[in-house]
Simulated scan of single mutants.
Amino acid sequence: MNPAVDAFLITIPPLVVYLTVGLVVGIESLGVPLPGEIVLVSAALLSSRHELEVSPGWIALAAVGGAVIGDSIGYAIGRRYGMGLFVWAGRKMPRHFGPSHVAAAERLFARWGMLAVFFGRFIALLRIFAGPLAGALRMHYPRFLIANVLGGICWAAGTTFAVYFLGIVAERWLQRFSWIGLVVAVIAGLTIGAVVKRRTARLVEDEG
């Protein structure tokens, strides 16, 4: 056991964890490229440490709230400024909003509609595009909201509880290592980031 690490983790108020998850996921859903999935995975792993009193249910709820609210604000911004918003974003952040990314996301939305919003929650490219692009393309808001809420629930709750139970299993097998949650969080985050990056590149290539 590592008393220093345990002492540090125990000092983190659960409310701070929930607010961090909701804020990061919300800002990412708004259209700003942040590591929302990595933050969610890390928080879910912390919740598997029972002595920290961090609830996986509240983490999932915070992530759902951040996803729905962030996407809705992004929708309003996209509806207000239209496709010109992505031209501006492409100049500022070409790695995330380059012409090929915007074109691929636009074709996916035109082809799949609500399904693009739902499954976009699981793909980095569409997760930051979903709200603003749906607004810019004038998708009917009630339809967008339904897909947004369902996608947010499946993504947030599914990820949180899958990682939570994985953390419990890991803790049982590796009880001697108090830092296992942090190590797994880093490894899981890097793995997820690599997988999402490859999936996004392949998606852009296929739709390009």
Rank of each mutant, 00 (worst) to 15 (best):
V87K: 08
G90I: 05
V195K: 01
G66S: 15
P56A: 05
L45T: 10
W88V: 14
A185G: 05
A104I: 03
A76M: 09
G57E: 09
S72D: 11
G135H: 04
A104L: 13
L40P: 02
I73K: 03
A194M: 10
V5I: 14
G120M: 01
L115P: 01
H140P: 10
H101N: 11
W112N: 10
V68Q: 06
G70M: 09
T160S: 11
T200H: 08
G70H: 08
P99L: 02
S47T: 07
F109I: 12
A116L: 02
L52W: 04
G193Q: 15
V5Y: 14
V163I: 10
V196E: 15
N2R: 07
N148D: 12
A105R: 07
L190I: 14
V196S: 15
V54I: 13
P142L: 12
G31N: 07
F177Y: 13
A76R: 12
F97H: 12
L133F: 00
F161E: 03
L34D: 02
G90L: 04
I153V: 11
L40A: 05
R49Y: 13
R121P: 12
E207S: 11
L52H: 00
G57R: 11
E207P: 04
H140I: 13
S48W: 00
H140W: 11
P3T: 09
F8C: 06
L108M: 15
G208P: 03
L137D: 02
L30P: 09
T20R: 04
V102T: 07
A110V: 07
A134L: 05
V102W: 01
V169F: 08
G84F: 06
A44H: 13
V41N: 00
F129I: 05
G120L: 00
V24W: 02
I59A: 02
G135L: 00
R127D: 00
L61F: 14
V64P: 01
K197E: 15
L52T: 07
L61M: 12
L190Y: 05
H140D: 09
F118A: 10
A116Y: 02
V163T: 15
L126Q: 05
E53N: 14
P35T: 12
V204N: 06
L85K: 14
Y164M: 01
L108S: 03
R49L: 15
D6G: 13
L145S: 05
F118M: 02
V68T: 04
G74K: 00
E205I: 04
Y18L: 06
I168S: 08
A162P: 09
P33N: 10
G90A: 03
I77T: 08
G36D: 03
A4M: 12
L203F: 03
I77M: 12
V195Y: 05
W173C: 10
V17Q: 04
V16P: 00
A60L: 00
